[in-house]
Write a protein that binds this DNA or RNA. Structure first.
Length: 563
RNA sequence: UGGGCCUUCGCCAAGCGGUAAGGCACAGGAUUUUGAUUCCUGCAUUCGCCGGUUCGAAUCCGGCAGGCCCAGCCA
Protein backbone atom coordinates (compact mmCIF):
# COMPACT_ATOMS: atom_id res chain seq x y z
CA UNK A 1 0.00 0.00 0.00
CA UNK A 2 2.72 2.40 0.92
CA UNK A 3 4.29 1.43 -2.37
CA UNK A 4 1.25 2.69 -4.22
CA UNK A 5 1.26 5.99 -2.40
CA UNK A 6 4.06 7.61 -4.31
CA UNK A 7 2.57 6.55 -7.63
CA UNK A 8 -0.75 8.01 -6.63
CA UNK A 9 0.94 11.20 -5.59
CA UNK A 10 2.73 11.47 -8.89
CA UNK A 11 -0.16 10.61 -11.14
CA UNK A 12 -2.55 12.59 -9.01
CA UNK A 13 -0.65 15.80 -9.58
CA UNK A 14 -2.73 18.51 -11.17
CA UNK A 15 0.02 19.57 -13.51
CA UNK A 16 2.48 17.46 -15.46
CA UNK A 17 6.05 18.54 -15.83
CA UNK A 18 7.57 19.09 -19.25
CA UNK A 19 9.14 15.64 -19.31
CA UNK A 20 5.85 13.95 -18.62
CA UNK A 21 4.24 16.04 -21.32
CA UNK A 22 6.88 14.97 -23.81
CA UNK A 23 6.45 11.33 -22.87
CA UNK A 24 2.68 11.61 -23.04
CA UNK A 25 3.01 12.91 -26.55
CA UNK A 26 5.48 10.20 -27.58
CA UNK A 27 3.12 7.56 -26.28
CA UNK A 28 0.12 9.18 -27.93
CA UNK A 29 1.91 9.32 -31.25
CA UNK A 30 3.08 5.76 -30.90
CA UNK A 31 6.73 6.63 -30.98
CA UNK A 32 7.37 4.31 -28.05
CA UNK A 33 5.21 1.50 -26.77
CA UNK A 34 6.73 1.46 -23.30
CA UNK A 35 8.77 3.75 -21.14
CA UNK A 36 12.26 2.66 -20.16
CA UNK A 37 14.55 4.99 -18.19
CA UNK A 38 17.93 4.67 -16.60
CA UNK A 39 20.29 6.09 -14.01
CA UNK A 40 23.80 5.91 -15.47
CA UNK A 41 26.42 7.13 -12.97
CA UNK A 42 30.10 6.90 -13.65
CA UNK A 43 31.57 5.00 -10.69
CA UNK A 44 33.98 7.73 -9.72
CA UNK A 45 32.65 9.01 -6.40
CA UNK A 46 29.83 9.15 -3.93
CA UNK A 47 26.30 10.08 -4.82
CA UNK A 48 24.92 13.39 -3.59
CA UNK A 49 21.49 15.05 -3.45
CA UNK A 50 21.78 16.02 -7.09
CA UNK A 51 21.99 12.36 -8.03
CA UNK A 52 18.99 11.72 -5.84
CA UNK A 53 16.97 13.98 -8.10
CA UNK A 54 18.00 11.99 -11.15
CA UNK A 55 17.38 8.65 -9.45
CA UNK A 56 13.99 9.67 -8.17
CA UNK A 57 13.01 11.29 -11.47
CA UNK A 58 14.09 8.41 -13.66
CA UNK A 59 12.74 5.63 -11.48
CA UNK A 60 9.61 7.62 -10.76
CA UNK A 61 8.86 8.17 -14.44
CA UNK A 62 9.32 4.47 -15.17
CA UNK A 63 7.00 3.53 -12.35
CA UNK A 64 4.42 6.13 -13.30
CA UNK A 65 4.19 4.77 -16.83
CA UNK A 66 4.37 1.13 -15.85
CA UNK A 67 7.75 0.90 -17.53
CA UNK A 68 11.20 -0.21 -16.52
CA UNK A 69 14.07 1.52 -14.78
CA UNK A 70 17.66 0.47 -15.37
CA UNK A 71 20.59 0.88 -13.02
CA UNK A 72 23.64 1.19 -15.23
CA UNK A 73 27.27 1.97 -14.58
CA UNK A 74 28.77 4.15 -17.27
CA UNK A 75 32.19 2.58 -16.90
CA UNK A 76 33.77 3.57 -20.20
CA UNK A 77 36.87 5.29 -18.84
CA UNK A 78 39.09 3.06 -16.71
CA UNK A 79 41.49 5.92 -16.05
CA UNK A 80 38.94 7.69 -13.88
CA UNK A 81 36.84 4.97 -12.40
CA UNK A 82 37.11 2.93 -9.27
CA UNK A 83 35.02 -0.18 -8.79
CA UNK A 84 34.95 0.38 -5.04
CA UNK A 85 32.43 3.16 -5.57
CA UNK A 86 30.00 0.78 -7.18
CA UNK A 87 28.82 -0.83 -3.96
CA UNK A 88 28.07 2.44 -2.25
CA UNK A 89 26.26 3.73 -5.31
CA UNK A 90 24.04 0.68 -5.53
CA UNK A 91 23.42 0.85 -1.81
CA UNK A 92 22.32 4.48 -2.09
CA UNK A 93 20.03 3.79 -5.04
CA UNK A 94 18.41 0.92 -3.16
CA UNK A 95 18.10 2.99 -0.03
CA UNK A 96 16.28 5.70 -1.94
CA UNK A 97 13.76 3.08 -2.92
CA UNK A 98 14.37 3.10 -6.67
CA UNK A 99 13.25 -0.20 -8.15
CA UNK A 100 15.75 -1.37 -10.72
CA UNK A 101 14.66 -4.96 -10.55
CA UNK A 102 17.88 -6.09 -8.96
CA UNK A 103 19.71 -6.09 -12.27
CA UNK A 104 22.74 -3.93 -12.80
CA UNK A 105 23.80 -2.99 -16.31
CA UNK A 106 27.33 -2.08 -17.29
CA UNK A 107 28.32 -0.01 -20.28
CA UNK A 108 31.47 -2.13 -20.49
CA UNK A 109 29.30 -5.13 -21.36
CA UNK A 110 28.57 -3.41 -24.66
CA UNK A 111 32.13 -2.79 -25.79
CA UNK A 112 31.84 -5.39 -28.55
CA UNK A 113 28.65 -3.89 -29.89
CA UNK A 114 30.11 -0.40 -29.67
CA UNK A 115 33.12 -1.57 -31.66
CA UNK A 116 30.78 -2.94 -34.31
CA UNK A 117 28.94 0.35 -34.44
CA UNK A 118 32.21 2.20 -34.92
CA UNK A 119 33.15 -0.13 -37.77
CA UNK A 120 29.75 0.52 -39.30
CA UNK A 121 30.32 4.27 -39.14
CA UNK A 122 33.70 3.90 -40.81
CA UNK A 123 32.16 1.79 -43.56
CA UNK A 124 29.51 4.44 -44.08
CA UNK A 125 32.27 7.02 -44.47
CA UNK A 126 31.14 8.69 -41.26
CA UNK A 127 34.24 8.06 -39.17
CA UNK A 128 37.97 8.06 -39.77
CA UNK A 129 41.19 7.25 -37.98
CA UNK A 130 43.34 10.24 -37.10
CA UNK A 131 46.93 10.42 -35.95
CA UNK A 132 46.71 14.03 -34.86
CA UNK A 133 47.98 14.69 -31.36
CA UNK A 134 45.70 15.95 -28.65
CA UNK A 135 47.28 19.38 -29.03
CA UNK A 136 46.78 19.41 -32.78
CA UNK A 137 43.18 18.38 -32.43
CA UNK A 138 42.58 21.17 -29.95
CA UNK A 139 44.29 23.71 -32.16
CA UNK A 140 42.31 22.75 -35.26
CA UNK A 141 38.99 22.62 -33.47
CA UNK A 142 38.62 26.39 -33.79
CA UNK A 143 37.13 28.59 -31.11
CA UNK A 144 33.69 29.65 -30.02
CA UNK A 145 33.65 32.23 -32.79
CA UNK A 146 35.89 30.64 -35.43
CA UNK A 147 35.30 27.46 -37.39
CA UNK A 148 37.75 24.61 -37.08
CA UNK A 149 39.86 23.26 -39.90
CA UNK A 150 39.61 19.83 -41.38
CA UNK A 151 41.75 17.01 -40.09
CA UNK A 152 44.31 15.96 -42.75
CA UNK A 153 43.15 12.40 -42.10
CA UNK A 154 39.57 13.30 -42.86
CA UNK A 155 39.50 11.84 -46.36
CA UNK A 156 41.42 8.72 -45.44
CA UNK A 157 40.00 5.77 -47.43
CA UNK A 158 37.49 3.58 -45.62
CA UNK A 159 39.65 0.47 -45.90
CA UNK A 160 42.60 2.25 -44.38
CA UNK A 161 40.58 3.57 -41.42
CA UNK A 162 39.14 0.13 -40.94
CA UNK A 163 42.61 -1.36 -40.81
CA UNK A 164 43.94 1.29 -38.45
CA UNK A 165 40.94 0.95 -36.17
CA UNK A 166 41.51 -2.78 -36.07
CA UNK A 167 45.17 -2.17 -35.28
CA UNK A 168 44.18 0.25 -32.53
CA UNK A 169 42.13 -2.51 -30.98
CA UNK A 170 44.99 -4.93 -31.43
CA UNK A 171 47.28 -2.70 -29.41
CA UNK A 172 49.52 -1.53 -32.22
CA UNK A 173 49.31 2.07 -31.13
CA UNK A 174 50.33 3.73 -27.92
CA UNK A 175 48.12 5.99 -25.87
CA UNK A 176 47.48 9.24 -27.73
CA UNK A 177 48.88 8.07 -31.04
CA UNK A 178 45.62 7.44 -32.79
CA UNK A 179 41.93 8.20 -32.35
CA UNK A 180 38.76 7.49 -34.25
CA UNK A 181 36.82 10.64 -35.16
CA UNK A 182 33.32 11.14 -36.45
CA UNK A 183 33.12 12.95 -39.77
CA UNK A 184 30.51 15.61 -39.19
CA UNK A 185 31.29 19.31 -39.62
CA UNK A 186 34.40 21.18 -38.52
CA UNK A 187 32.56 24.46 -39.08
CA UNK A 188 29.54 23.64 -36.95
CA UNK A 189 28.59 26.41 -34.52
CA UNK A 190 28.09 23.56 -32.05
CA UNK A 191 31.60 22.61 -31.05
CA UNK A 192 30.48 19.12 -30.09
CA UNK A 193 29.80 18.44 -33.75
CA UNK A 194 33.30 19.36 -34.96
CA UNK A 195 34.40 15.81 -35.72
CA UNK A 196 34.21 14.56 -32.14
CA UNK A 197 36.47 11.76 -31.01
CA UNK A 198 34.71 8.43 -30.81
CA UNK A 199 37.48 6.19 -29.54
CA UNK A 200 40.80 6.77 -27.84
CA UNK A 201 43.66 4.42 -27.05
CA UNK A 202 44.30 3.71 -23.37
CA UNK A 203 46.44 0.81 -22.32
CA UNK A 204 44.82 0.54 -18.93
CA UNK A 205 43.14 -2.57 -17.63
CA UNK A 206 39.43 -2.16 -17.01
CA UNK A 207 37.86 -3.25 -13.75
CA UNK A 208 35.42 -5.49 -15.57
CA UNK A 209 36.91 -6.29 -18.96
CA UNK A 210 40.47 -6.61 -17.78
CA UNK A 211 42.98 -6.16 -20.58
CA UNK A 212 40.64 -7.26 -23.35
CA UNK A 213 40.46 -3.70 -24.59
CA UNK A 214 43.03 -0.99 -25.03
CA UNK A 215 40.64 1.34 -26.85
CA UNK A 216 37.69 2.88 -25.07
CA UNK A 217 34.67 4.72 -26.45
CA UNK A 218 34.03 8.35 -25.52
CA UNK A 219 30.86 9.33 -23.68
CA UNK A 220 29.22 10.97 -26.70
CA UNK A 221 29.55 7.78 -28.70
CA UNK A 222 29.02 5.23 -25.95
CA UNK A 223 26.06 6.71 -24.18
CA UNK A 224 23.53 6.76 -27.01
CA UNK A 225 24.51 3.21 -27.93
CA UNK A 226 24.15 2.04 -24.35
CA UNK A 227 20.68 3.55 -24.27
CA UNK A 228 19.76 2.04 -27.63
CA UNK A 229 20.98 -1.44 -26.67
CA UNK A 230 18.92 -1.44 -23.51
CA UNK A 231 15.84 -0.18 -25.31
CA UNK A 232 15.77 3.01 -23.27
CA UNK A 233 12.93 5.19 -24.52
CA UNK A 234 13.70 8.39 -22.68
CA UNK A 235 17.23 9.24 -21.69
CA UNK A 236 16.85 11.87 -19.01
CA UNK A 237 19.97 13.86 -18.23
CA UNK A 238 21.02 17.26 -17.01
CA UNK A 239 21.07 20.55 -18.90
CA UNK A 240 24.76 20.65 -19.74
CA UNK A 241 24.15 17.84 -22.23
CA UNK A 242 21.70 19.86 -24.29
CA UNK A 243 24.49 20.77 -26.69
CA UNK A 244 25.30 17.09 -27.02
CA UNK A 245 21.83 16.08 -28.12
CA UNK A 246 22.50 16.66 -31.83
CA UNK A 247 25.46 14.33 -31.50
CA UNK A 248 23.44 11.83 -29.50
CA UNK A 249 20.89 11.79 -32.29
CA UNK A 250 23.61 11.62 -34.95
CA UNK A 251 25.12 8.51 -33.35
CA UNK A 252 21.86 6.76 -32.83
CA UNK A 253 20.52 7.62 -36.29
CA UNK A 254 23.65 6.44 -38.06
CA UNK A 255 24.09 3.15 -36.27
CA UNK A 256 20.82 1.60 -37.41
CA UNK A 257 18.44 1.19 -34.50
CA UNK A 258 14.82 0.51 -35.17
CA UNK A 259 13.55 2.56 -32.27
CA UNK A 260 16.22 4.96 -31.07
CA UNK A 261 15.97 6.58 -27.63
CA UNK A 262 15.25 10.24 -27.05
CA UNK A 263 17.31 12.47 -24.79
CA UNK A 264 15.53 15.02 -22.62
CA UNK A 265 17.38 17.40 -20.33
CA UNK A 266 16.37 18.85 -16.98
CA UNK A 267 18.00 21.28 -14.55
CA UNK A 268 20.28 20.14 -11.78
CA UNK A 269 19.42 20.85 -8.21
CA UNK A 270 21.48 22.92 -5.82
CA UNK A 271 20.97 23.71 -2.19
CA UNK A 272 21.32 27.33 -1.12
CA UNK A 273 24.40 27.97 1.01
CA UNK A 274 25.42 24.33 0.88
CA UNK A 275 28.66 23.44 -0.77
CA UNK A 276 28.40 20.40 -2.93
CA UNK A 277 31.57 20.75 -4.97
CA UNK A 278 33.62 17.57 -5.04
CA UNK A 279 36.85 19.50 -4.98
CA UNK A 280 35.86 21.36 -1.85
CA UNK A 281 34.52 18.33 -0.03
CA UNK A 282 37.67 16.44 -0.91
CA UNK A 283 39.61 19.19 0.82
CA UNK A 284 37.41 18.90 3.90
CA UNK A 285 38.02 15.17 4.01
CA UNK A 286 41.75 15.54 3.47
CA UNK A 287 42.02 18.15 6.19
CA UNK A 288 40.15 15.98 8.62
CA UNK A 289 37.44 18.58 9.04
CA UNK A 290 34.94 15.89 8.27
CA UNK A 291 35.49 12.19 8.63
CA UNK A 292 34.66 11.09 5.13
CA UNK A 293 32.23 11.31 2.27
CA UNK A 294 29.50 10.00 4.52
CA UNK A 295 30.02 12.61 7.21
CA UNK A 296 26.59 13.77 8.36
CA UNK A 297 27.45 17.34 7.44
CA UNK A 298 27.91 16.50 3.79
CA UNK A 299 24.91 16.35 1.54
CA UNK A 300 25.98 13.07 0.00
CA UNK A 301 23.27 10.43 0.08
CA UNK A 302 25.30 8.51 2.64
CA UNK A 303 25.82 11.66 4.71
CA UNK A 304 22.14 12.51 4.67
CA UNK A 305 21.36 8.95 5.66
CA UNK A 306 23.75 9.11 8.62
CA UNK A 307 22.41 12.51 9.55
CA UNK A 308 19.00 10.96 9.86
CA UNK A 309 17.12 11.86 6.69
CA UNK A 310 14.74 9.20 5.51
CA UNK A 311 14.38 8.09 1.88
CA UNK A 312 10.80 9.32 2.03
CA UNK A 313 11.93 12.77 3.06
CA UNK A 314 14.35 13.03 0.17
CA UNK A 315 11.77 11.79 -2.30
CA UNK A 316 9.34 14.32 -0.93
CA UNK A 317 11.95 17.03 -1.31
CA UNK A 318 12.61 16.19 -4.94
CA UNK A 319 8.90 16.04 -5.62
CA UNK A 320 8.32 19.38 -3.93
CA UNK A 321 11.21 21.01 -5.74
CA UNK A 322 9.81 20.09 -9.09
CA UNK A 323 11.40 19.43 -12.46
CA UNK A 324 12.16 22.30 -14.79
CA UNK A 325 14.83 23.73 -17.03
CA UNK A 326 15.75 26.71 -14.91
CA UNK A 327 18.72 26.47 -12.60
CA UNK A 328 17.14 25.92 -9.24
CA UNK A 329 18.73 26.69 -5.91
CA UNK A 330 16.45 25.26 -3.29
CA UNK A 331 16.30 26.38 0.31
CA UNK A 332 17.72 23.95 2.81
CA UNK A 333 14.62 24.83 4.82
CA UNK A 334 12.58 22.88 2.30
CA UNK A 335 14.62 19.75 2.96
CA UNK A 336 14.19 20.27 6.69
CA UNK A 337 10.48 20.70 6.21
CA UNK A 338 10.35 17.36 4.40
CA UNK A 339 12.08 15.42 7.15
CA UNK A 340 9.98 17.09 9.85
CA UNK A 341 6.88 16.25 7.88
CA UNK A 342 7.93 12.62 7.55
CA UNK A 343 9.03 12.16 11.13
CA UNK A 344 6.61 14.17 13.22
CA UNK A 345 3.87 11.57 13.11
CA UNK A 346 6.04 8.52 13.52
CA UNK A 347 9.07 9.42 15.60
CA UNK A 348 8.92 8.25 19.21
CA UNK A 349 9.32 11.02 21.78
CA UNK A 350 12.02 10.95 24.35
CA UNK A 351 13.36 13.37 26.93
CA UNK A 352 16.89 14.53 26.41
CA UNK A 353 18.77 17.30 28.09
CA UNK A 354 21.52 18.47 25.79
CA UNK A 355 23.17 21.07 27.95
CA UNK A 356 22.44 19.88 31.47
CA UNK A 357 22.33 21.82 34.70
CA UNK A 358 21.24 20.17 37.91
CA UNK A 359 17.94 20.98 39.53
CA UNK A 360 17.28 19.95 43.12
CA UNK A 361 13.79 19.86 44.59
CA UNK A 362 14.48 20.74 48.20
CA UNK A 363 11.15 19.62 49.60
CA UNK A 364 11.11 16.29 47.75
CA UNK A 365 11.92 13.37 50.09
CA UNK A 366 15.54 12.41 49.89
CA UNK A 367 16.12 8.90 48.57
CA UNK A 368 12.63 8.63 47.10
CA UNK A 369 12.08 7.59 43.51
CA UNK A 370 8.80 7.23 41.70
CA UNK A 371 7.79 6.24 38.20
CA UNK A 372 5.77 8.66 36.19
CA UNK A 373 3.82 7.95 33.05
CA UNK A 374 5.04 10.25 30.36
CA UNK A 375 2.89 10.75 27.32
CA UNK A 376 3.88 13.61 25.17
CA UNK A 377 2.80 12.64 21.71
CA UNK A 378 -0.78 13.75 21.59
CA UNK A 379 -1.39 12.85 17.95
CA UNK A 380 0.10 9.41 18.23
CA UNK A 381 0.01 8.29 21.89
CA UNK A 382 1.57 4.94 21.15
CA UNK A 383 4.72 6.67 20.06
CA UNK A 384 5.32 8.63 23.21
CA UNK A 385 4.03 6.76 26.26
CA UNK A 386 6.52 5.30 28.68
CA UNK A 387 7.41 5.22 32.34
CA UNK A 388 10.20 7.48 33.47
CA UNK A 389 11.81 7.65 36.92
CA UNK A 390 11.59 10.85 38.94
CA UNK A 391 13.40 11.89 42.08
CA UNK A 392 14.80 14.81 44.05
CA UNK A 393 17.61 15.55 41.62
CA UNK A 394 17.07 16.19 37.95
CA UNK A 395 18.84 17.64 34.98
CA UNK A 396 17.17 20.39 33.04
CA UNK A 397 18.25 22.35 30.02
CA UNK A 398 20.59 25.17 30.86
CA UNK A 399 18.62 27.52 28.62
CA UNK A 400 15.44 26.70 30.53
CA UNK A 401 16.66 28.72 33.48
CA UNK A 402 17.61 32.38 33.65
CA UNK A 403 18.53 34.18 36.79
CA UNK A 404 17.49 37.46 35.20
CA UNK A 405 14.86 36.64 32.62
CA UNK A 406 14.21 38.81 29.58
CA UNK A 407 10.73 39.98 28.77
CA UNK A 408 8.27 37.25 27.76
CA UNK A 409 10.54 34.53 29.12
CA UNK A 410 8.21 31.88 30.44
CA UNK A 411 10.46 29.18 31.73
CA UNK A 412 12.28 28.96 35.06
CA UNK A 413 13.60 31.94 36.98
CA UNK A 414 13.68 32.79 40.68
CA UNK A 415 10.16 33.03 42.00
CA UNK A 416 8.54 31.57 38.90
CA UNK A 417 6.53 28.38 38.76
CA UNK A 418 6.75 26.08 35.75
CA UNK A 419 5.60 22.60 34.91
CA UNK A 420 8.08 19.75 34.67
CA UNK A 421 6.46 17.99 31.81
CA UNK A 422 4.24 15.13 32.96
CA UNK A 423 5.63 15.49 36.48
CA UNK A 424 5.02 18.35 38.91
CA UNK A 425 4.83 22.08 39.18
CA UNK A 426 8.03 23.50 40.61
CA UNK A 427 8.90 26.98 41.81
CA UNK A 428 12.43 28.24 41.65
CA UNK A 429 13.81 29.45 44.94
CA UNK A 430 17.47 30.18 44.22
CA UNK A 431 20.52 29.14 42.33
CA UNK A 432 24.20 28.52 43.03
CA UNK A 433 27.01 29.80 40.84
CA UNK A 434 30.70 29.17 40.51
CA UNK A 435 33.42 31.79 40.61
CA UNK A 436 32.85 32.63 36.95
CA UNK A 437 29.18 33.22 37.51
CA UNK A 438 28.02 30.05 35.75
CA UNK A 439 24.96 28.48 37.25
CA UNK A 440 25.86 25.17 38.86
CA UNK A 441 22.74 24.23 40.75
CA UNK A 442 19.14 25.39 40.79
CA UNK A 443 16.99 25.06 43.87
CA UNK A 444 13.24 24.72 43.75
CA UNK A 445 10.26 23.37 45.62
CA UNK A 446 7.48 21.25 44.19
CA UNK A 447 3.76 21.02 44.75
CA UNK A 448 2.90 17.36 45.50
CA UNK A 449 -0.69 17.99 44.46
CA UNK A 450 0.34 18.59 40.87
CA UNK A 451 1.53 15.06 40.14
CA UNK A 452 1.26 14.32 36.44
CA UNK A 453 1.43 18.00 35.61
CA UNK A 454 -2.09 19.17 36.41
CA UNK A 455 -3.00 21.41 39.28
CA UNK A 456 -6.21 20.56 41.13
CA UNK A 457 -6.85 24.21 41.89
CA UNK A 458 -6.75 25.04 38.23
CA UNK A 459 -3.91 27.51 38.42
CA UNK A 460 -2.01 27.97 35.20
CA UNK A 461 1.64 28.01 34.57
CA UNK A 462 3.24 29.73 31.60
CA UNK A 463 6.08 27.39 30.89
CA UNK A 464 6.59 23.67 30.59
CA UNK A 465 10.08 22.26 30.54
CA UNK A 466 11.49 18.81 30.07
CA UNK A 467 13.80 17.01 32.44
CA UNK A 468 15.67 13.83 33.11
CA UNK A 469 16.21 12.08 36.47
CA UNK A 470 19.83 12.58 37.44
CA UNK A 471 20.55 9.18 38.93
CA UNK A 472 19.22 7.05 36.10
CA UNK A 473 19.86 9.22 33.06
CA UNK A 474 21.99 7.75 30.31
CA UNK A 475 24.94 9.89 29.25
CA UNK A 476 25.15 10.32 25.50
CA UNK A 477 27.01 12.43 23.03
CA UNK A 478 24.74 14.66 21.00
CA UNK A 479 26.19 16.19 17.89
CA UNK A 480 24.77 19.39 16.56
CA UNK A 481 25.72 20.42 13.08
CA UNK A 482 25.92 23.58 11.13
CA UNK A 483 25.73 23.28 7.42
CA UNK A 484 29.25 23.05 6.14
CA UNK A 485 29.83 26.45 4.63
CA UNK A 486 27.75 29.45 3.86
CA UNK A 487 28.57 30.44 0.31
CA UNK A 488 27.50 33.96 0.99
CA UNK A 489 30.26 34.21 3.55
CA UNK A 490 32.62 32.93 0.92
CA UNK A 491 34.02 29.53 0.17
CA UNK A 492 37.33 31.25 -0.28
CA UNK A 493 38.93 33.75 2.05
CA UNK A 494 40.73 36.92 0.96
CA UNK A 495 43.93 34.96 0.32
CA UNK A 496 42.22 32.63 -2.05
CA UNK A 497 42.47 29.79 0.45
CA UNK A 498 39.57 27.49 0.96
CA UNK A 499 37.59 28.66 3.91
CA UNK A 500 37.24 25.57 6.05
CA UNK A 501 34.75 25.77 8.85
CA UNK A 502 35.94 23.56 11.69
CA UNK A 503 33.16 24.67 14.00
CA UNK A 504 30.49 23.00 11.96
CA UNK A 505 29.97 20.36 14.64
CA UNK A 506 29.35 20.81 18.34
CA UNK A 507 29.40 17.81 20.63
CA UNK A 508 27.22 18.07 23.72
CA UNK A 509 27.51 15.88 26.80
CA UNK A 510 23.84 15.18 27.06
CA UNK A 511 21.57 12.92 29.09
CA UNK A 512 18.59 10.97 27.91
CA UNK A 513 15.95 9.22 29.95
CA UNK A 514 16.58 5.51 30.68
CA UNK A 515 13.62 4.37 28.59
CA UNK A 516 15.86 4.95 25.60
CA UNK A 517 16.78 1.30 25.73
CA UNK A 518 13.17 0.27 25.24
CA UNK A 519 12.64 2.76 22.47
CA UNK A 520 15.79 1.65 20.75
CA UNK A 521 13.94 -0.35 18.15
CA UNK A 522 13.44 2.97 16.47
CA UNK A 523 16.44 4.86 15.28
CA UNK A 524 14.87 8.28 15.17
CA UNK A 525 13.48 10.28 18.06
CA UNK A 526 11.87 13.57 18.61
CA UNK A 527 13.57 15.17 21.56
CA UNK A 528 11.43 17.60 23.38
CA UNK A 529 11.87 21.12 22.07
CA UNK A 530 15.29 20.41 20.67
CA UNK A 531 14.36 18.70 17.50
CA UNK A 532 14.76 15.39 15.79
CA UNK A 533 17.71 13.16 16.44
CA UNK A 534 18.97 9.92 15.04
CA UNK A 535 21.28 7.40 16.62
CA UNK A 536 24.36 7.39 14.42
CA UNK A 537 24.73 3.86 13.21
CA UNK A 538 28.38 4.36 12.39
CA UNK A 539 29.70 6.12 15.46
CA UNK A 540 27.45 4.79 18.14
CA UNK A 541 29.34 2.93 20.83
CA UNK A 542 27.74 0.82 23.56
CA UNK A 543 27.36 2.74 26.78
CA UNK A 544 27.44 6.18 25.24
CA UNK A 545 25.40 6.33 22.07
CA UNK A 546 26.00 9.15 19.64
CA UNK A 547 23.03 11.10 18.43
CA UNK A 548 23.05 13.32 15.40
CA UNK A 549 20.59 16.15 15.26
CA UNK A 550 18.71 15.98 11.99
CA UNK A 551 16.84 19.20 12.30
CA UNK A 552 15.64 21.64 14.91
CA UNK A 553 12.02 22.23 15.54
CA UNK A 554 10.74 25.65 14.69
CA UNK A 555 10.79 28.13 17.49
CA UNK A 556 8.83 31.33 17.38
CA UNK A 557 10.51 32.76 20.45
CA UNK A 558 14.23 33.26 20.44
CA UNK A 559 16.00 34.42 23.53
CA UNK A 560 17.13 38.03 23.09
CA UNK A 561 20.65 36.91 23.92
CA UNK A 562 20.62 34.53 21.00
CA UNK A 563 19.93 37.29 18.53
C1' U B 1 32.19 37.22 -28.83
C1' G B 2 29.56 31.70 -32.31
C1' G B 3 25.96 28.15 -30.59
C1' G B 4 22.46 26.08 -26.98
C1' C B 5 19.36 26.91 -22.78
C1' C B 6 17.10 29.89 -18.94
C1' U B 7 14.46 34.54 -16.64
C1' U B 8 6.72 34.36 -12.86
C1' C B 9 6.75 36.63 -4.71
C1' G B 10 13.04 35.85 -0.37
C1' C B 11 13.34 30.13 -2.45
C1' C B 12 11.09 26.25 -5.57
C1' A B 13 7.05 26.24 -9.11
C1' A B 14 2.08 26.13 -12.01
C1' G B 15 0.49 28.87 -16.17
C1' C B 16 0.40 27.14 -23.12
C1' G B 17 -4.29 34.46 -25.67
C1' G B 18 -9.35 35.54 -21.44
C1' U B 19 -7.55 38.87 -17.03
C1' A B 20 -1.32 35.51 -11.64
C1' A B 21 -2.34 27.85 -8.66
C1' G B 22 0.37 25.59 -4.90
C1' G B 23 4.51 24.52 -1.52
C1' C B 24 8.77 26.37 1.45
C1' A B 25 10.07 30.74 4.17
C1' C B 26 8.00 34.79 6.70
C1' A B 27 4.17 37.63 9.68
C1' G B 28 -0.29 37.80 12.70
C1' G B 29 -4.27 35.09 15.51
C1' A B 30 -6.73 30.49 17.95
C1' U B 31 -5.92 25.83 20.52
C1' U B 32 -1.72 23.28 23.16
C1' U B 33 1.46 19.44 29.60
C1' U B 34 6.89 20.18 23.50
C1' G B 35 7.79 28.52 22.44
C1' A B 36 6.61 21.90 18.39
C1' U B 37 2.32 20.01 16.05
C1' U B 38 -2.70 21.35 14.45
C1' C B 39 -5.80 25.34 13.02
C1' C B 40 -7.27 29.76 10.63
C1' U B 41 -5.40 34.68 8.30
C1' G B 42 -2.00 37.64 5.48
C1' C B 43 1.89 37.52 1.81
C1' A B 44 3.18 39.32 -6.96
C1' U B 45 -2.66 44.93 -9.93
C1' U B 46 2.06 41.82 -11.65
C1' C B 47 5.21 37.89 -14.69
C1' G B 48 13.83 40.50 -16.60
C1' C B 49 13.29 45.31 -19.69
C1' C B 50 11.34 48.13 -24.07
C1' G B 51 8.25 48.26 -28.09
C1' G B 52 4.42 45.83 -31.31
C1' U B 53 -0.05 42.60 -32.59
C1' U B 54 -4.91 42.00 -30.14
C1' C B 55 -11.28 43.84 -27.55
C1' G B 56 -7.81 41.34 -24.30
C1' A B 57 -0.71 39.18 -23.52
C1' A B 58 3.10 36.16 -18.25
C1' U B 59 1.36 33.66 -22.57
C1' C B 60 2.15 35.70 -29.82
C1' C B 61 6.02 38.96 -32.63
C1' G B 62 10.54 42.17 -32.61
C1' G B 63 14.55 44.29 -29.96
C1' C B 64 17.49 44.60 -25.51
C1' A B 65 19.44 43.10 -20.69
C1' G B 66 20.98 39.38 -17.17
C1' G B 67 22.26 34.18 -15.91
C1' C B 68 23.95 29.09 -17.03
C1' C B 69 26.47 25.57 -20.43
C1' C B 70 30.08 24.22 -24.65
C1' A B 71 36.62 24.96 -27.29
C1' G B 72 38.78 16.93 -22.34
C1' C B 73 41.93 11.69 -26.34
C1' C B 74 36.19 13.41 -18.81
C1' A B 75 31.20 12.04 -17.98
Amino acid sequence: MSDETSTAEVTGKKSRNFIEEAIDQDLREGRYKEVVTRFPPEPNGFLHVGHAKSIILNSGIAKEYGGTFHMRFDDTNPTKEKSEFMDSIVEDVKWLGADFGGKIYYASDYFDKMYECAVLLIKKGLAYASDLSADQIRETRGTLTEAGTNDPNRERPVDESLQIFSDMKAGKYNDGEMVLRAKIDMASPNINMRDPILYRVAHIPHARTGDKWCIYPMYDFAHPIEDAIEGISHSLCTLEFEDHRPLYDWVVNNTDWENPPRQIEFAKMYLKNIVTGKRYIKKLVENGIVDGWDDPRIVSIAGLRRRGFTPESIRKFVELSGISKSNAVSDYAMLEYCIREDLKSQAPRIFAVLDPVKLVIDNYPEGQTEELLVQNNVENPGMGSRKVPFSRELYIEREDFMEVPPAKYRRLYPGNEVRLMNAYYVTCTSCEKDADGHVTLIHCTYDPATRGGDSPDGRKVKGTIHWVEAGSAIPVKARLYENIVDEEKGVYDENGELNLNPNSMTVMNAYVEPSLSEAKVYDRFQFVRNGFFVVDSKDSAPGSPVFNRIVSLKSSYKLPTQA
